[in-house]
Structure formats: C-alpha cells, structure tokens
Amino acid sequence: MSKKIIKTIKIDADKCNGCRACEVVCAAFHATPKYSSVNPARSRIRLIRDPIKDIFLPVYAGELATAECMGRDKYILDGKEYEECAFCRASCPSRDIFKEPDSGLPLKCDMCEGEKEPLCVKWCLEEALIYEEREEDVEEEVKPDEIEQGLQSLLDKHGLEKLVDTLTRMSEKD
C-alpha cells in the first residue's frame, strides 16, 4: 500500500455568478510566457452558461478522448435540461472545447502546477470552485516489464508451443 494525493476542484454550481473569471485567469496563466496573453478559448476550465435557463456550470478539462461516445447522456436537474456532454471533462472530437483554437491540440487541467491552489479557485470570489486535496491508499501492483508484456501478448495470440519453437529457432541462428 502507498499514499497518493488526489487533487479535486469541488464545483458548487449554485454559487456561480457566470462571470468567467476562471476562464480568464486560466488562459492567462497557461500562456507562454505566463500571463503574456489571454484568450478564454485556450482555457482549461469552461463555463457552460445559459442565464435564461439558469444554467451555470463550470467544467474543467480532463483526459483526452480519441473517439466520441456513441451513447450520450442528458441530465435534467431541478427542471433544467443540460446539453449533451455538459458534465463531461474530456477533450473529444465531438466538441470544440478543451482544444487549442489554432492547433486543435487537447488541453488538460494541470491544477496550476507550482501555485498554492488552482488559479480559477483563487479568482472565484463566489466560492463556486473549492480546491480539495486528500490522500488515498493505492494498492502497489507489481508491474510487468516491457519484454514480459510483449511476450505475454505474443503468447496470448500464438500459444506457448509456437512461441517456444520460434524462440528456439531464432537462438539457433545466432
């Protein structure tokens, strides 16, 4: 067993005022050099915002998804219907958020490495974004090395007999 730090941003969407300061500071912080430019389209946190329907939902970028989901989910909460994919954090072919606007490269939240807390959290005076860290126990699994992994897949595919035969033949050549 070992310890692992899990970093989360708890999102209290009811407190969101819809201002997008989270997007602004995220985009500025991740500019190169830092803060040298701002462009919310590069932000790793995005606000899904439809004031008339009272939808204010900050979502921050997670893992890259190379393919879009076949089945999509729609949520209705408190009578408000959220768009498909609203709660999903993936940078995914089905939509244009969490991608660099020029290159299309995926964006992912890095919790503002090097800062005390993610800056979207710091800039959200509404406290709609709350940073939390917790320790979790993780099972230490013994990871197979690369050769073993490769051999395992050959074994699965061709069977032990064929694999041994081949290895023997190859070693005889030398």
């Binding site: 500025a28 500019a31 803060y35 430019s37 462009n39 389209a41 590069r42 606007p101 800039w123 005076l125």
Partner: peptide, 22 residues
C-alpha cells in the same frame, strides 16, 4: 465570437496589480 489572443506588455507587473485589485 472570438478565439484570438490579447497580448499584455508587462505580464508579471500587470497580473500583480490585478491580484491586488481582487
């Protein structure tokens, strides 16, 4: 709808001033 950058001349100075404002 815009997805372009706005540039800041002196980034460190500027962000420090805005953090003070906040």
């Amino acid at each position: 709808r815009g997805t372009r950058d706005i540039n800041i001349a002196k980034p460190d100075e500027f962000i420090e001033l805005i953090n003070e404002v906040l």
